[in-house]
Every structure is written in C-alpha cells, then in structure tokens.
Design a protein around this nucleic acid. Structure first.
Lengths: 221, 221
DNA sequence: AAAAAATCACCCAATTTGGGGGATACAGAC
DNA sequence: GTCTGTATCCCCCAAATTGGGTGATTTTTT
C-alpha cells in the first residue's frame, strides 16, 4: 500500500519537483498538491494523507497554523515542514504545533523518500543544525541578576507552590521566603508572582526538568 | 596557543586513547587526565582547562555533578560529555548542568579534534540521535485527560497567575475559572495548585514557550 | 437521549499575598 | 573599615486568593 502524501507549497516549481520525486517511487503516492493551506484543509478528509509536506511561508494561513489544524483533524497524520531558512522561533512554533520533522528545502530533495521513511518509523527527521537550535534553548543561561537562593524560590513560585510550601521544601522559615520574594520583586521591578514567573520564563531561568523517569498520569475519572 | 584540555575518564585505556589522539595535534594540549572528578576538581584552577572531556559514569562524583561544579568554578570552560550509552535522562541532566556537547564514545575518537573545534566555535556538538532525543521531548503530547480549556487554565496557573488574571486573559468570569480548577483537581486527584502543576509538568502538558524574540532582562538595580 | 464541556453564581472560612517596618550574621569588595 | 550583597528571621496589617460546597444554563459531542 503506497503512503498517501499531500503537498502544500505555494511555489509551483518546488511543488512540482516534490510531486515528480515522490510519484516516481513505489512507496509514495501524492494524492494532491496545493498552493495554500485553505484549499488543502477543505479536502483534508477526502485526501486522507498519511504525510503532509508543508511549506512554512504561505499566503493566508501560515504553515504553522495549518500544521495545528491538520493535527487536530488527523492526529495520526505526520506533518513535515519544508523551508529555506532556519528561523529558531518558527522551528519551535512548528514543533509545538505538532510538526513531525523539519526539512531544509534545497538540502536533499532526492532523498525525500528516506526522510519520509524516517518520519513514518517514528523518528523526527531534521538537520543537525535545526536540532541543535532546539537543544541550545535547553541550556539554562546563568542568571547574574538573581542569587542562587532567589532563583530556587522563584522556581517554587513557577511550580505553583505557596510560600509556606517553598519554605518547607527549602528548610527555611516562611518569613525568609517572603524576604527573598521581596528582593526578587525589587530586582525584577515587578509586584506579582505572574510577572516574576513571566520574566523568568522569558530569560530561561527556570528548570523545566523534562525527561522524567516515568510519567505519572492519574487514572481516568 | 594550544587549547588546554583536561580529561576525566575512569577507564585507563580510553583515557590514554584520548590523550594520545589529542597530544598528536598542534592545536590541543592535554594538561592533565584523571580517573575521577574529585582529583580533577582539586587541580582545576591549576589546570585551567579550556575544554574538559568528561565521562558520565564515574566512581564517586558523577560526571553530571562534576560538570555543574566545573561550570561554577570556570564558567567559560567547555565541558564535553563522553559516554557509551545514550540515556535520555542523563542527556538532559548533563545539558542542564552546563555541558557544551555530547559525544558517543566509540563513534569518532579520531575526529575528536573537529568536535572540540565545533564546541569552541560556540556550537553544541552531538550526534543527531542525541539531539533528536531532546527535540522529541519538546513535542507536547496530547492530553486526553484534561479538556483544551482546562489545559489553558492550568497553563495560567503554571504561569503564576491568579484566578482573576486568568479569567481576564481568557475573557471569562473568575467563577468559571474556579469551576475549571475544581474539575482539574477532580480529574488529577489533587487539591492544590502545586500538585496540579507538578502533574502537568511530569506529563509535559505545559507549553514552556522557549524561543522568544528578544529576552527581556530588567536593568541591574 | 446522555455525557461532556464551558459558562456563571453565591456561600464560607482559612490561607495567601504584598507592602511596610525592622533585625542578625557572614561573606567580599573597595 | 565600611559598604554591598546574601541569607536568615520576626512583627503588623489589610486585601486578595484559595479550596470546598451546591447549585445553574448552554452548547457540543457522542
């Protein structure tokens, strides 16, 4: 059974290139190719693609919004972003929208088949430079503004803990926590938890602590 | 000027291999090689390495703890983790500890020079499979337990917002937010913000929204 | 028709929060 | 030797928040 591919790309030449490359294979079948997201979304349930090749810069609905919409309609469909430039913000937004991989356009149009294979096998195909961009963002940059202790307290706030709980966890008095908070507010020039957490997030001062030994999902109802 | 390298690796054969490979170059000089972190840390300020090659599994202080200690003492020193197995949890912990790259041991000992070069140029050298591991963790897994709206509310909680602020931002009444919170608590079987945020984080239900256009650091005092 | 989901309202008491005012002790820096 | 920053702790006060009830209506989904 050939995998069903939908292509969304506004430049006809590139679009046709992908169609030709994929139609020449045994494994893939391009069910449709569109110049914008709107028309692709209209025919989504008719096309029923296994994989969507999505340009990121499109007239009208962007590739990122389009990815989100497609994943909402067809959660099992794999959306691969194709783009010329590697914009860190767009990379992240696409991954959040549910993109399954990130392909730089002029890199390897001939081995597009391999890339799709990898995505279908559950991998996340992307160039090393793209992957690094995401990895870089993980690296907590040192925070000279807040002291170590203040950062610890702020982490507690970001975790939704009350002052009492933070005090308990850090083995200090609640009053000490309050003093730290006051100093944090003074340094960050804010007057509320929400603002402090926002600034901490904007500067990646917080430990998001991904990679947990075993995710704990509570029972369903 | 040859770059100063320190090696921390408990298996003598591997350690000697790295020393030999690096000493044969013009660009690098191995100032010292240790079998554990403790002795390396004692001589850290004498060695003053530009780059540390750090094994992750060591007797005594682990490579991850060691990385954190080294970065605290010498923030400009680049620590590259060398390991045999690709453990997602350890990868993340090392990056958090301040590791500048991740090298799989038996892969390319001969082009170790290129890897170090890349790290010195500001890159984050690592195999594609390692990078993907981190990227994968970014992909928010769908959350069938909480509704979309409930997830939005929980995001507000994680952002440190009060019920009123969340209501304001979502254009709904404070009472509605309270109802959503009650339902969240029921579904997650918790009774506090901190617990709800903890479970949300453990299951990666939250949007950490990295990649900001321009980090906003408030003025220094 | 039944079940979720999303919206809003009112009651209550305990807790939290933000702001103000202090204090002590220990580091480094100048 | 004084000054600054850090970390710790204490008190007061008033407003806001929070968690727990018990209701309700509407829309959407199944």
């Amino acid at each position: 059974m050939r995998k069903r591919i939908t292509i969304i790309e506004d430049i006809a030449a590139i679009r046709d290139g992908f169609v030709a490359a994929l139609e020449s294979t045994e494994k893939y079948h391009v069910v449709n190719a569109y110049g914008n997201c709107e028309s692709a979304l209209l025919n989504l349930h008719a096309d029923m693609p296994d994989v969507v090749l999505m340009d990121i810069e499109l007239p009208g609905i962007s590739g990122i919004e389009g990815t989100a919409k497609i994943k909402k309609e067809l959660p099992n469909c794999i959306v691969l972003i194709i783009t010329v430039l590697e914009d860190s913000e767009k990379v992240f937004e696409s991954l959040c929208a549910g993109a399954g991989g990130y392909i730089v356009k002029n890199s390897n149009i001939e081995n597009i088949g391999q890339t799709i294979d990898e995505a279908l096998r559950g991998g996340a195909p992307m160039s090393l430079s793209i992957a690094k961009m995401v990895v870089e963002s993980f690296r907590k940059q040192p925070n000279s503004l807040l002291s170590d202790r203040e950062t610890e307290v702020l982490q507690g706030i970001a975790a939704g803990k009350s002052y009492s709980k933070i005090a308990q966890d850090l083995f200090i008095s609640k009053e000490t926590v309050r003093t730290h908070i006051k100093n944090i507010y003074r340094k960050l020039e804010v007057t509320s938890k929400a603002d402090a957490v926002r600034i901490a997030n904007e500067n990646n001062w917080v430990n998001t602590d991904r990679f947990h030994s075993s995710p704990i999902v509570p029972p369903k109802r």
